[in-house]
Write a protein that binds this DNA or RNA. Sequence first.
RNA 1: GGAGCCGUCGCAUAGCGGUCUAGUGCGUUCGCUUGGAAAGCGAAUGUGGGUAACACCACCGAGAGUUCGAAUCUCUCCGGCUCCGCCA
Length: 439
Amino acid sequence: MLDIKFIREQKEFIKEVLRKRKTKFDLDAFLAQDDKRLEILKNVEHLRSEQNQVSNRIASNHTKDAERAQLISEMRGLKEELKKSEDDLNEIMKEWQKDMLVIPNIPSADTPEGPDESGNKVLRTWGEKPAFSFVPKDHEEIGKALGIIDTDTAAIVTGSRFSYLKGDLVKMQFGLIQMCFELLTDDEKLTQIAKEANVNVKIKSFIPIIPPVFVRPLIQVKMARFLTPEEHYVFPEDDQMLVGSAEHTLGPIHMDHIFKEEDLPIRYAGYSTAFRREAGAAGKDTAGILRQHQFDKIEMETFSLPEHSTEEQNFLVAIQEHLLRELKLPYEVMIVCTGDMGFPDNRQIDINTWMPGQDRYRETHSADSTGGFQARRLNTRVRRSDGKIEPVHMNDATAFAIGRTLIAIIENYQQEDGSVRVPDVLVPYVGKEVIKHRS
RNA sequence: GGAGCCGUCGCAUAGCGGUCUAGUGCGUUCGCUUGGAAAGCGAAUGUGGGUAACACCACCGAGAGUUCGAAUCUCUCCGGCUCCGCCA
């Protein structure tokens, strides 16, 4: 949510934002409504003020009985007028709040304008795509043959887009989790990463979190992550829904809280399963485990001072890149254009990792800078040293989308005989250098 | 799931229909005092809306209601605690 004062003051600018982000919204009509809202609000406050004054006179000992009776009958009339005005205000506020939720965040200056994902720009690439002396297979074929991925049984037991991961692949998942948390809780390594990426942030390690996977729909609305209800598993009788990302329960941790300036930044790393209905993706990526209804993820969520949030986002991207470099997986870093970026984002950076089995880069990471957009709805603020209170800035970013990272490893590290080499950094966790079929 | 308590300004508490535009203590900040400090004394200290700035208004877990008037009474919901039951 944007600041209504800002919207009022920067009308033309907001219109431009709406156009760039392909949002159909009649801003003029909305602002006319807003004028009306302020007018009614003033009226309500005036009436309430009068009500209090008269009420005080009724209560006063100096008021004579006859006068008191007179005042009480006066109050009856006032009461009705107030009620009517309040009803008007409530009605207009309902519309107003709905409208405010439709206006997206303002894209950063370096966000390219574009209609859809074709407008995204690659900022840099890293790593050599592996050269194979044979035709590389995709992860499903390899995983199935090795007995480490079983989607067939999952389809029978549960349904499509679910899977059993088995054997060494499970150990590899826990290896990824381990190496990730070791990094994110290590000040020294984080300092090194920031230095190498030339990013200027206060180093403070991440607090590991295992968050709930259920969340109230109302909280999702505050996170601006509930624009497509059909994408979520919702349980109306419990007024709860499954999260689509750990971000959904990490972001609201400090709802209604006011930070001291020196508290920031605060960084969390949450490990959680994510659930998505993939309602709009029928027939897309049906093979293997690329697009599942259920997958595990480590998500970074940080709270920072407004002037530090872009640098914070760059820091999170540097961490993402570091993790991929540790695994020696080739990737490209991409800045997402206005037509493709997430609704609450002011700057979105995606990382696509090379997947030889599909002969293309696929999205494995996203780093979303939402500025004060989510924080304003969540009422998460900071008191500056001069006493002023403002929304904090929030960043969220993938550390590992584990399923997709496993895919990238399987496909990049595959060998002609169908076995998969284990990346050096994961060998201690998996306990072997090559994953072969279990005899 | 059953029974009983409870939710007030950072924390702790008062508040039992009008004097609550919410009192007190702790904490915090500033000042006095001091060679300096502690103690003591004095003052300030919630959030939001609104305004050029004031005024003004709202907020006592959330919402609805009763009333001329609600932190206070009623209802619904949310959350917490204690006991019982069940359970990893």
